[in-house]
Structures are given as C-alpha cells and as structure tokens.
Design a protein around this nucleic acid. Structure first.
Length: 365
DNA sequence: TAGGCCATCTGGTCCT
DNA sequence: AGGACCAGATGGCCTA
C-alpha cells in the first residue's frame, strides 16, 4: 500500500493523517473567533485560481499600505465587468468552525468511499486477470493490459464460435496480442509455449490464419452420440492433450481438474434430461468452461455458458440437436471441439446460438 | 534517470 | 445533503 493514508483507520485518525486540503483546511486562517472566518462569498471553493487572485490583490494593497490603491483596483474591475444583479436566494452560510469541521469530515468520508470504490474496481480487475489467458501471480498484468487482453480474448473466442474454426497457437496468440505491450506479448507467447518472435507482425511462422489445425481431435462421426461413448472419447481425448503446465499460466481449473466435477443435468417437465446446447450446463462453477484448442495447448473461457440456453446448433441445411451427453463439464467442451472438427471438414460455417441470433445475447431459460 | 504504473486525494457534476 | 462517478494532480515505487 502506497500513499499517505493508512486505509482502514478510524475517520478521526484520518483527519490528522490525511494530506491537508487546499480548499477546506485553510491552515492559514486564524480560527479563534467566529468573526475571523471568511464567508463563502469571500472564499471561492470551486476555483482556486480565483481565490489566489483575490489574495494577490489584497497582498499587494497590504504591502503598499495604501487604501486608495485597493479602491482603484476595485473600481477598475467594476468598470471592466458588466454589472451583475445581486444573487437572490438564501445568503450563503458563514464558514464557522463547526461548518469547517463538517466539510472536512465530509471530505474524509468521501475519500474513504473513493478508496473503497477503487479497491472494488481493482478487485474486479483481479478477477478479470484470472479469467484471461496468461494469468500469472508473479508477473501481474497492468490494468490497461488486462483490459486489452480481455477484449482480444473475447474477440478471439467469439471468432472461434462464429467460424467454427480452431485457430493454431500462433494465430490465437496474435489475436490475443493486438495492441499489447512487448512484455505482455512475451507473456502471451510464454503461456502458449510459443517463441515470442512468432508474434511479431512480420513473423513468417504462419502466413495464413488458422493454418495449423489442432491434431488431438476426437473422432466425431455422428452428431448424435451416446453418452457413454462420448464420455469415454472425451476422457481419453482430453487426457491426451492436457497442457504441460511448465511456465504456462492458465486460468485454472484445467480440464484435468474439472473433469470429475459432477453437475446435474437439468431435467425437463417430464423428468427427463433436458436437451442441452453444446455450450450449456456442465460447468464446475456454473460458468462456461470452453477450451479453445490451440496447436500447443488450450485456452479457456468462462462465464459464457449461461448465455446459451438454447438447444440446437444451426447450420445452413440442418438443425442438430445435442443429446444430454453427460454430467461433466468436459463433455460440453468435447462436443464443441468435435463439432468444429466435423463441420470444418465440410467447410461449413457453424452457427451456434439461439433464435435471437447473437450468441452473446442473454436469454432467460 | 526517465518513464510507466499505481494509489490516493481532490473538486466537479449528476443523481437521489 | 450526501453518495457515486469521473478526471486531474501528485507522489511513491519499480524497471529498463
């Protein structure tokens, strides 16, 4: 914690510890008698520069010791400025000692609120840091980099869902790295176990986007697949391409960690398992656990699944229902992965979503 | 040492 | 009157 203030202390203590304010403390004012306080008409709390001007003028007149000069200056001001009718309404209150204290206390409370507000903002940013790829406790992303990376991440994931094409690691990393600093780009590259040079704009590593297709795909011959068969495939498949953790810093839990989390399959009115969208349900913490596969490892996105309450995947020529395939998060992810593979083979654009089109639109179940 | 990042204070504005 | 939000200012810390 930096800064001049000790957070969490009593306000009374804060009064003495906080930095003196320019407009409220007025340490230069002798507060012994009520008459010594200046009224609000004399002190402009809203514009320090104006107050300074008044002080300067008065100082000049004091040093010269000539009342006339002060009057002359006042006359000049009056002549130059158009006459303004006297303000109506209640007269401004005098700056009494009690009022001064109230204002000071109000400022202290406002500072506390502002601190708490910023702490809340930072807490939210910390949560966001954990949800973007390349989360690292040792190399903490700055605020701006976190926001940029999150934007890029959302865009990249949306692109995957929109096109159904799984990008290679370099393409994905490049998409994540748009507008990021060199340090963060290196971090992204490290997390994806890539050479940072491959992320340079003119890198010849991969010339086409999505050139490198992921190899560890599950054979998904039929869109309607039995639960047991699918789960078996998923377990085998995901075990095989679990990332080597190494230096990579992912938003945990990884697939291996969440694959045994039991989540109840929602039931319909008849008590049967409800038909689910491939992006619906099956999460460890009621959030989406899609793993966007890359050439090297996987990335993860959260908190999207609740936005996919519908039961189908639409394609240009067909609507495919996804059977309730299991009670574990991994299956949902596997469905997506396999569907991407099978559709990709047919060079078909996969539209995943609901009647309202936008996959990010929230629809109440 | 300059520059980036951050926490904090502050006053202004808007809203309740 | 008071709270939320915002942006500017300031000073501390860290790193290249």
């Amino acid at each position: 914690m930096t800064g001049p203030v000790c957070v969490g202390q009593e306000e009374s203590a804060l009064i003495t510890k906080e930095m003196p304010t320019r407009s409220i403390l007025h340490d230069d004012i002798d507060c012994e008698e009520e008459s010594d306080f200046l009224s609000d008409d004399d002190i402009d709390f809203s514009d320090q520069s104006e107050a300074t001007t008044v002080e300067t003028v008065e100082h000049e007149s004091k040093t010269s010791g000539n009342k006339k000069s002060k009057q002359t200056k006042a006359n000049i001001v009056e002549k130059d400025e158009p006459k303004v009718p006297k303000k109506r309404g209640p007269k401004k209150k005098k700056m009494t000692k009690a009022r001064l204290m109230r204002l000071r206390m109000r400022r202290v409370k406002a500072n506390t609120r502002e601190r708490n507000r910023m702490h809340g903002l930072n807490d939210a940013l910390d949560i966001l840091r954990k949800h973007v790829p390349c989360y690292s406790k040792t190399q903490k992303l700055s605020k701006i980099e976190t926001l940029r990376l999150a934007c890029n991440y959302i865009g990249a994931l949306a692109n995957i869902l929109k096109t159904g094409i799984r990008p290679d690691g370099v393409s994905f990393a490049k998409a994540l790295s748009k507008g990021l600093s060199q340090n963060t780009m290196n971090l992204v590259a490290g997390c994806l176990q890539l050479n940072p040079r491959t992320l340079l704009p003119d890198s010849p590593a991969y010339t086409k986007p999505y050139q490198f297709l992921y190899e560890n795909s599950v054979d998904f011959s039929s869109p309607l697949i039995s639960q047991s068969e699918f789960v078996n495939q998923c377990m085998t498949s995901y075990d095989s391409f679990s990332p080597s953790r190494g230096n990579a810093c992912y938003s945990v839990p990884s697939m291996n960690q969440i694959q045994h989390t039991n989540i109840q399959t929602p039931l319909n009115d008849l008590g049967s398992p409800r038909i689910m969208s491939p992006l619906q349900g099956f999460t460890a913490d009621n959030s989406l656990q899609i793993e966007a596969m890359t050439s090297s490892n996987f990335l993860r996105c959260d908190n999207v699944i609740d936005s996919y309450p519908n039961n189908y995947v639409s394609m240009p020529n067909q609507v495919m229902n996804i059977a309730p395939i299991g009670q574990e998060c991994i299956t949902t992810c596997a469905v997506m992965e396999n569907m991407q593979d099978s559709f990709l083979d047919n060079d078909t654009i996969v539209m995943i979503g609901n009647q309202h089109g936008n996959i990010f639109d929230h629809v109440s179940p």
